[in-house]
C-alpha cells in the first residue's frame, strides 16, 4: 500500500471499541492532517476527542483500520513512532516534587536524548518559556501558569514533528496564554504539525487553520476554518460549534 509521507497523520477506516463493549465507539473514521498544519479538533464532552488523541498517541489501540504518523503505523510502545510526536496533556504530566531542570533531565532521557543535548535544550527552553529564574525550584510551588509552561516544555523537549496539545492553556492568565500561543505559532513556523484540542474556541480561531468537529465518535465537519464558517454561514467557531453539535447539555459519564 502506498504511503503518503506528506501526511503527518493518516487515519484510515479506523474503528475502536472500549474494553468490555461489543459495539464500536468509533467506526470507519478517516482523517488526514498535512505536514506542518495547525489542526484543531473540537467537540462536546464525551464526543471522542480524548479517545481519538489517545489512539493517535498509542495510549489506546485501534480495533480496526490504521493510524499512521508520517507513514509509520501507530501501536503501543512503538519507539520509532513515539519519537515523532510530543504530547502536552491537559493534566500536569510531570513530577511536582522535582524542579523544571530535573523534570526536563528525566523526560529528556526517556525521550532518548543524550546528556549534552538535554543540557543545551533545557537552557534553551527555560529561556524561551521564561522559567530561568525558577529553574531550581520545586514545581509544586509554582502557579498554574508556570506549571503549564513546564508541561509544554516537556512536550516539545525532543523537538517532535507532531505536537498533540490537549487544553494547553486551561486556567492560565492572559499573559501566559499569549506567550504559549506565540510559542506554538513559532514552532509551527519551523515545521511542527500542531494537533490542538480545547474548549476555548476563540483562542482556537487564532491558532488553527484546519478544523474538525467530532461528536459521538464521528467527524461531523472537517475543512479549512474560513471555508467551514462560510459554508455554514457562521461568524465564529463557537457559533459553528453550537450549530453543528446543538445547545443541549452533554452528560459525560
Amino acid at each position: 500500500m502506498a504511503v503518503n509521507n506528506s501526511l503527518a497523520i493518516d487515519i484510515e477506516n479506523m474503528g475502536f471499541r472500549y474494553p468490555g463493549n461489543s459495539e464500536l465507539f468509533i467506526s470507519g473514521l478517516n482523517l488526514q492532517v498535512q505536514k506542518g498544519e495547525r489542526f484543531g479538533l473540537f467537540g462536546p464532552n464525551a464526543a471522542g476527542k480524548t479517545t481519538l488523541i489517545s489512539l493517535m498517541t498509542g495510549l489506546l489501540s485501534v480495533d480496526e483500520g490504521h493510524i499512521r504518523l508520517f507513514g509509520r503505523e501507530v501501536g503501543r510502545r512503538n519507539n520509532a513512532v513515539s519519537k515523532l510526536f510530543g504530547f502536552v496533556p491537559q493534566d500536569f504530566s510531570f513530577y511536582q516534587e522535582l524542579t523544571p531542570v530535573e523534570n526536563l533531565e528525566f523526560f529528556g532521557a526517556w525521550s532518548g536524548l543524550d546528556k549534552q543535548t538535554i543540557r543545551k535544550r533545557t537552557d534553551e527552553l527555560l529561556h524561551i518559556l521564561g522559567l530561568e529564574e525558577v529553574r531550581n525550584k520545586q514545581v509544586q510551588k509554582f502557579s498554574g501558569g508556570m506549571k503549564r509552561r513546564v508541561n509544554l516544555a516537556i512536550g516539545v523537549f525532543h523537538k517532535p514533528q507532531i505536537l498533540f496539545l490537549d487544553e494547553p492553556t486551561v486556567g492560565v492568565d492572559v499573559q501566559t496564554r499569549y506567550a504559549i500561543i506565540k510559542y506554538l505559532l513559532e514552532l509551527n513556523k519551523h515545521g511542527t504539525t500542531l494537533i490542538y484540542t480545547s474548549h476555548q474556541l476563540s483562542e482556537a480561531e487564532g491558532l488553527c487553520e484546519q478544523v474538525a468537529l467530532i461528536d459521538d465518535g464521528k467527524i461531523i465537519a472537517h475543512d479549512d476554518l474560513d471555508k467551514l464558517l462560510k459554508d455554514y454561514h457562521q461568524d465564529s467557531l463557537e457559533h459553528l460549534f453550537l450549530n453543528l453539535t446543538g445547545k443541549g447539555y452533554r452528560n459525560d459519564v
Binding site: 520509532a80 496533556p89 493534566d91 500536569f92 504530566s93 523526560f107 532518548g112
Partner: peptide, 10 residues
Amino acid sequence: GSFIRLKTLP
C-alpha cells in the same frame, strides 16, 4: 498525570 506521558515516550 506523568504516567500518561511516560506511556507515550520511547
